[in-house]
Design a protein around this nucleic acid. Structure first.
Lengths: 339, 339
DNA sequence: TTGTATGCGTTATCAC
DNA sequence: GTGATAACGCATACAA
């Protein structure tokens, strides 16, 4: 493979000139630049990445750490990952794919070796152990997800409180008065996973402002659990006409249960889901859903990391606005059902 | 950050000794090895990736090229990607994530710069333009998917012919005599996309051996197209009791159409799908399905690439055996329906 | 079993 | 506007 020195020889200039043509870090006369470009072309020259990283102290690589356990909806993860690499390429960076099975050591390795200049962490937990590593090593990073203490960190996440609020506002506007929020698994709340609590908090605040009466039931994503929650809700508040679901596993069961109980959707009961578009489109009827912009999550994370690598920016929490897409599962509230 | 030279100094040995302790390429006495290890530990030393790549001419990185167009079922792509990185890590390699929007130039860049030692291409097409680049640059590679001319290449793919055969054999064993194969979109066959043709060929051969009568209808993945194909099949062969679907978009419509025509699944009609497990589990009833092992696809591709990077192996086409998982959608054939 | 010396291909500092 | 040249941190051929 051709080297910079060979290019210089062919172009009849010194190696440093070639280097400067490439980096643009000093003025080069048009004719020499031209000759160098041609030599590069002719030799099919590509600067050696290793040498570049060694001499320049920058690898032009960032690491993207994806979770192994498929807790997140997989297509969404993929969308984020692709958005990250696309954004990184815009800045001349490549992306190293790390899984979490190496644990925090994987991070140490890639930043300690200078392989990656910075890191993007997906699916960050409230008390994520990787954060300590980042801080101890002074690693530039952007987190996707909001940890318990984001001070000093750069984070991007969905605005879950706003997502919850959108659900409440939508149902209120349709004239619903009694609504049920079928939430995440109890364990998720106990773990204080952040997003679950932020969502219900936003929902309840907006519900209060709109005069909605709310029943909140955490729920496992199984048919049995959903059936239990459903029965409980109707026992407590038989007039319930609005349902919000956050646990994806409860969506199918809930629709079945509504049907089985003789409630037509959206005529007798409205359903709003907190889930990705693809899932919302998959049900019958299509679900009115609140979705966060997955692509933008990746894009923003990458951009924020790039800023840091260029010495700009610092501590920042970016909450991305979710959007509610009205589909077939929500409609105007009916009067109370006869007991 | 600590350097090898500093480690050497702390350990009281020469730099080369440290290097050899790390690489294991020459015998080191237990005591010196011990001292070096401790110095490494104490300094938190990580070998510099750039320097290593430069001096050793090996980056310990492979590139994984994922398709941008989400033609393939996304969770399957992700599974493959994760399997690749996991396998690569076993061999001390990291994975660079490339999207296809740079086109073949992306390949030139990462191999030309010595960034990646080898490449894994996902979703390889019959006449994939990237293959020419690989050959011209002499790049070590493993392809996931089978191109028209795999000579000189290392490829991994599902054994689609076997997948087709499994469907036929399963239906034959259940006593079905007349079966319909609802295939890929006509354009896919016209494009000679390989897998579609291999599947139907395997299906037809096995059907012949089992004495099955076959109707093959290519079909777009829409409800309307499926309805048309369905009507056509029943018009041609009203006694059809077995259905095989390859186009994922036809699965839902087919189930609806069977129900609407008064055919119970699996009592009156059996359905076998060629699709990922996750999709098969998503329908009611759960679908008997033939699935290729996605994880293994990634794992094998990575292993085959590693072999090449270590000077072993060469031209090879590995076809992975698909498996049929019987679920609720297939059962014993009934006698012919009354006309 | 260990040490010495050279080169890998760039970047960047100095000099002209 | 351009050319020498010294790092950069490691691997390895050569010595001892």
């Amino acid at each position: 493979m051709a080297t910079l020195a060979q290019v210089a020889q062919v172009a009849g200039v010194s190696p440093s000139t070639v280097s400067y043509v490439l980096s643009g870090k000093r003025a080069i006369s048009a004719p020499t630049r031209e000759r160098v470009q041609q030599a590069i072309e002719a030799l099919g020259y590509h600067p050696n990445a290793g040498a570049r990283a060694l001499a320049g102290k920058r690898s032009q690589i960032i690491a993207l750490v994806v979770p192994l356990r498929t807790d997140v909806y997989v297509p969404v993860m993929m969308e984020i990952a692709l958005a990250v690499t696309t954004a990184a390429r815009r800045h001349g960076y490549d992306v190293l794919l790390l899984t979490n099975d190496e644990g925090p050591d994987g991070l140490r390795r890639v930043v300690g070796s200078g392989l990656a200049e910075g890191v993007i962490l997906m699916d960050v937990q409230l008390d994520d152990p990787r954060i300590a590593v980042l801080q101890r090593t002074g690693t530039r990073a952007a987190l996707i997800g909001l940890p318990a203490d984001p001070s000093g960190l750069v984070c991007v996440d969905h605005d879950f409180a706003r997502a919850g609020a959108l659900c409440a506002e939508h149902l209120a506007e349709l004239g619903h008065r009694d609504v049920a929020f079928i939430g995440c698994a109890p364990a998720v709340y106990r773990r204080h996973t952040g997003y679950a609590e932020r969502t219900i908090a936003g929902f309840q605040e907006a519900a209060r402002d709109s005069g909605l009466r709310v029943v909140h039931r955490p729920c496992e994503g199984t048919f049995e659990a959903t059936a239990g929650a459903f029965a409980g809700i109707l026992a407590d508040v038989p007039e319930t006409t609005g349902f919000v679901v956050q646990n994806e596993g409860c969506i199918g069961p809930l629709l079945s249960l509504l049907r089985a109980s003789g409630r037509a959707v959206p005529e007798d009961a409205s359903v709003v889901a907190l889930c990705p578009e693809q899932l919302a489109e998959q049900h019958e009827p299509r679900l009115t859903a609140v979705t966060g912009p997955a692509r933008e999550l990746g894009d923003r994370a990458a951009e924020l990391l790039m800023s840091q690598l260029h010495g700009r920016g610092g501590e920042e929490v970016a909450l991305l606005r979710p959007v509610l897409t009205a589909r077939g599962s929500s409609g105007p509230a009916k009067g109370p059902r006869p007991r």
